[in-house]
């Protein structure tokens, strides 16, 4: 599997990197850590490139290199790099320009298969989408953003599962909340959730929400399947069948101490664009990390 972890700064991205790497380790995934710098106006590209080239003569790093160096240090300190990669240290000379606005450092992972550090510039959604499309990532992990359209754009346009690390407290006692229904993505979501729950040893609640008191047969079947799968995986869990508003129930159960895992919406992209979707609402309103699993 391939995971993409987007980081923004040393100050705010530590929880994202920490949780992202732990999840990647659980899946034994290859990891790419990407820093996306701000878009450079087309009028200024040559001026900025000229200034950046000149910085090298003064042994100064361009913006973002310090963030990658910090990420490297984190990986090194936490044993995510092989002895060979860690021993060499972070060296700006290893940053290879692969595209006009993309540089990368290739490293060998310890627990994970491989680790890449990437520096890009531009609109974050465009850059993440391009990276995901080119290298077919399974999960994109990113911190929560204050930008209103960010959650929408991530779900709508990034063709991978999305894990938004929102309000994650590294020392917090987390549980897992799985949203289960009869949608095709649910099984994949349960499998992903189970893997994370095993790795983090999380108590899991699988909740099925119906808008009426009358539960459809398919909902009951899906809930029973989830229960069976979780028990077989050795995960301590409870199954809940709730009726009412999906968002309210999820938000109440999740509080701020759950990791929510749910399948992506099966609505058409046009319908999602205009009317939104349940995963989008969960991502916007819940106060904890959310993993939206896509097909």
């Amino acid at each position: 599997m391939k995971f993409l972890i987007a980081i923004g700064s040393k100050e705010y991205s530590e929880p994202t990197l920490r949780l992202g790497m732990r999840v990647a380790k659980a899946f034994n995934a290859a990891v790419t850590i990407v820093y996306v710098g701000e878009k450079i106006s087309a009028f200024s590209t040559s001026g900025v490139h000229l200034a950046q080239e000149n910085l090298k003569n003064w042994e100064l790093d361009r913006q973002g290199v310090d963030v990658l160096a910090w990420a490297f240090k984190y990986l090194e300190d936490n044993g995510y790099l092989s002895t060979g990669s860690a021993g060499e240290g972070f060296n700006i000379g290893r940053l290879v320009q692969t595209d006009e606005d993309r540089c990368e450092v290739f490293l060998e992972g310890n627990h994970t298969q491989e680790v890449r550090l990437i520096l890009r510039n531009g609109d974050i959604i465009e850059q993440l989408r391009d990276e995901v499309n080119k290298r077919a990532f399974d999960i994109t992990i990113i911190g929560a953003s204050n930008k209103r359209s960010m959650a929408h754009d991530l779900i709508q346009y990034i063709d991978s599962s999305i894990f938004v690390v929102k309000n994650y407290q590294p020392d917090g006692q987390y549980k897992m909340l799985l949203a289960v229904n009869d949608a095709p993505n649910t099984r994949k979501a349960v499998k992903y959730g189970a893997r994370v729950a095993q790795a983090f040893d999380l108590y899991t609640t699988a909740v099925t929400v119906s808008s009426t008191t009358d539960f459809r047969e398919n909902y009951k079947k899906a809930s029973a399947w989830a229960d069976k799968f979780l028990r077989r995986s050795g995960i301590e869990n409870e199954i809940r069948l709730e009726h009412g508003r999906f968002m309210e129930i999820m938000s109440t159960i999740a509080g701020d101490n759950h990791i929510i895992v749910m399948g992506s919406s099966t609505k058409s992209p046009l319908a999602k664009f205009f009317t939104g979707s349940k995963p989008l609402k969960v991502m916007k309103h819940c106060k904890c990390p959310v993993l939206i699993v896509k097909e």
Binding site: G37, E38, I40, S41, F43, S44, S46, G47, V48, A51, Q52, R62, Q63, G64
Partner: peptide
């Protein structure tokens, strides 16, 4: 603004 001139963008690129 940042986009006002290349010099504004150059200093902004320092982060």
């Amino acid at each position: 603004t940042i986009v006002a001139s290349p010099t504004c963008m150059i200093i902004h690129s320092s982060g």
